[in-house]
C-alpha cells in the first residue's frame, strides 16, 4: 500500500487507486447485499467474510495498516469462526432460512432507504469534494503511543468491558 500511496502523492489524478477502490467498493456492496438477503445462513457468513476483507482493504487505502491487520485477525480470524460455531450449535437449518414476511422486508427497506437518503444528503452537502490525502501510512508506533498515553482510560475501560463480556457470556450460556 505504501507504493500506491507514493504514486498518488505524485500524480494528482489517483486513477489507479480510484479504479481499484471502485472495484472493491462494488464487490463489498454486492457482498453486503447478499449477507442481508441470502436465505442460507452459512452463505451469509461467507459473504460476510468478503465484506470484512473489503473493509480491511479500505483501511489500507486510508493508510491505517495496523487497523487493517487487526481487522483481518480479529474479524475474519475470530468473529467469523464464532459465527460458524454459532450456526452449528443452534443447528439453524444449514440450508435455507424460512422466507421472511414481505411486509417486514418492505418496512425495513423503507427505513434503510430513508436513512441512506438522509445520510447521503448530509454527506454530499457538507463534504462535497473534500480530498483526503494519504502521504504516509500510519505507523504502529504512532497508534500504540496514542493508545497508551492519550487514550489510556478508554483502553482500560475496553479491557474491563471485554472481561465483563467474557464473564457475561459464560453466565448467560452455561447450562444449569
Amino acid at each position: 500500500m505504501q507504493l500506491l500511496a507514493q504514486v498518488s502523492s505524485e500524480t494528482d489524478l489517483y486513477v489507479a487507486q480510484n479504479i481499484f477502490f471502485a472495484v472493491i467498493a462494488v464487490t463489498m456492496i454486492y457482498a453486503a447485499f447478499r449477507v442481508v438477503t441470502t436465505a442460507n445462513v452459512v452463505h451469509a457468513a461467507l459473504w460476510l467474510v468478503v465484506v470484512l476483507a473489503g473493509v480491511a482493504v479500505q483501511f489500507l487505502f486510508l493508510g491505517a495498516e495496523f487497523v487493517a491487520v487487526t481487522q483481518v485477525l480479529v474479524y475474519i480470524g475470530a468473529v467469523i469462526v464464532l459465527f460458524l460455531f454459532g450456526v452449528m450449535l443452534t443447528r439453524a437449518s444449514m440450508g435455507d432460512d424460512e422466507t421472511v414476511a414481505g411486509e417486514k422486508r418492505a418496512m425495513a427497506a423503507i427505513v434503510g432507504v430513508l436513512l441512506f437518503a438522509v445520510m447521503a444528503m448530509a454527506l454530499v452537502d457538507s463534504f462535497e469534494d473534500t480530498r483526503v490525502d494519504i502521504d504516509q501510512p500510519q505507523g504502529v508506533t504512532e497508534v500504540s503511543d496514542a493508545i497508551f498515553s492519550q487514550y489510556i482510560v478508554p483502553f482500560e475501560a475496553v479491557s474491563v468491558l471485554l472481561l465483563a463480556a467474557l464473564i457475561g457470556a459464560i453466565v448467560v450460556a452455561r447450562k444449569d
Binding site: 417486514k104 418496512m107 425495513a108 423503507i110 427505513v111 430513508l114 436513512l115 437518503a117 438522509v118 445520510m119 444528503m121 448530509a122 452537502d125
Partner: peptide, 24 residues
Amino acid sequence: VQNYAAIMFAGAAILAGAFVLLLA
C-alpha cells in the same frame, strides 16, 4: 424487538433529516 428497532431507526432518520434541512 425488530418492530421497535424499525421505529427507532426511522425516528432517528427523520430527526437527522430535519437537522440537515435546518442547517442547509
